[in-house]
């Protein structure tokens, strides 16, 4: 909080007409009502900014604070909160965004395959993901990570992500990790507020506004798939992806956990995730697991595939394969 704002709060308290007056019952009740209103407003707006700011902003923040979990919302409620979030983004950051609440497509289960033979470590997927998902530029949050590994290595923990030379290098292969959208996801079980769940199309998503930032999910995830916002994400408005999804790349706040959603804002419209589209080597295969004619099914049927830490029983929908 800025010191100036803090001063405002104090000043208001000092200027309060209640100070130093003997109170009757009637005045007391009146003033408690006022204090409660002030307190509520301060709660919703962060110490008085709402009072100084517009009435509209205060109303929006109040309603946002008390909204329900996304899973329990009716479509009308979803539309309302989207309208509020779009308006708040305009007020806070001066950007015009469109948030979608598009649900899963019937008969779709998303699956992903990564070709470890073909990836050459150019990392174009990483930067495409950062741009698409409005990731924090200040702490350089990334969903996708690529590790340079020596032949014979299997564990990305021993891989080198900060390679600083031209790629590919002889005797090495490149392995990408991100959220694997497990069918039996441990992060979902760990969440105490039901802020994260599996959608019917297999995506594990987060309702950022229900996340309390306890980071249990991060501790539970064996694949290092989740990221925490230590500060309010910094995204230059001109670089922001304006087409957003409530469960995907909409703006997060400080103290909220986020993760890869296979670009829910794109994939539910039939488009490819940003990393797949950006990959210059075609190492990334994405598609519908329930569709026997899809590329992902071809890979699973005809290629040698493996999953990371399969023995944990998390049942990830992300396969590695070799040519």
């Amino acid at each position: 909080m800025k010191p100036g704002k803090h001063m405002d709060c104090q000043n208001r308290k000092e200027n309060s007409p209640l100070k130093g007056k003997p109170l009757g019952r009637r005045e007391f009740l009146k003033s408690t009502g006022k204090v409660a209103a002030l307190g509520g407003a301060a709660l919703a707006s962060g110490c008085g900014t709402g009072l100084i700011g517009s009435n509209e902003e205060l109303r929006l923040r109040w309603k946002e604070y008390f909204k329900g979990n996304y899973q329990l919302m009716t479509q009308a409620e979803k539309d309302e909160t989207i309208k509020r979030l779009e308006r708040l983004a305009k007020i806070d950051r001066g950007v015009d965004i469109q948030i979608s609440s598009k649900g899963p497509i019937e008969g779709v289960l998303f699956g992903y395959a990564f070709n470890v033979t073909r990836c050459e470590g150019f990392m174009e997927c990483v930067s495409a993901c950062v741009r698409e998902n409005n990731l924090d530029r200040k702490t350089q949050t990334q969903y996708v990570r690529i590790f340079e590994m020596e032949y014979g290595q299997m564990n990305p923990e021993s891989g080198n992500g900060k390679y600083f030379h031209e790629v590919p290098v002889e005797g090495h292969f490149y392995m990408g990790v991100q959220c694997f959208q497990c069918e039996s996801a441990p992060c979902i079980k760990a969440c105490p507020t039901k802020a994260t769940w599996r959608e019917p199309d297999g995506l594990v998503v987060v309702d950022y506004d229900w996340c309390i930032g306890c980071r249990y999910c991060m501790a539970a995830c064996p694949y290092w798939g989740r990221r925490f916002n230590w500060n309010t994400p910094v995204i230059p408005p001109e670089q922001m992806t304006k087409k957003q999804h409530y469960l995907g790349n909409r703006l997060r706040g400080k103290g909220q956990v986020e993760k890869c959603t296979f670009c829910v804002q794109r994939t539910r419209e039939g488009r490819l995730p940003a990393c797949v589209e950006a990959c210059p080597t075609g190492s990334r295969i994405f598609g519908n697991l329930l569709d026997p004619k899809s590329e992902i099914r071809f890979v699973l049927q005809n290629k040698k595939v493996f999953r990371l830490k399969e023995d944990l029983g998390t049942d990830p929908k992300f396969w590695y394969f070799i040519d």
Binding site: M123, Q140, E157, Y163, V167, T281
Partner: peptide, 15 residues
């Protein structure tokens, strides 16, 4: 064959 080139970004360790 694809030409060798510099990566566009870098990745911090998994943990």
């Amino acid at each position: 064959r694809f030409e060798k080139r510099w990566p566009e970004a870098y990745s911090p360790p998994v943990n």
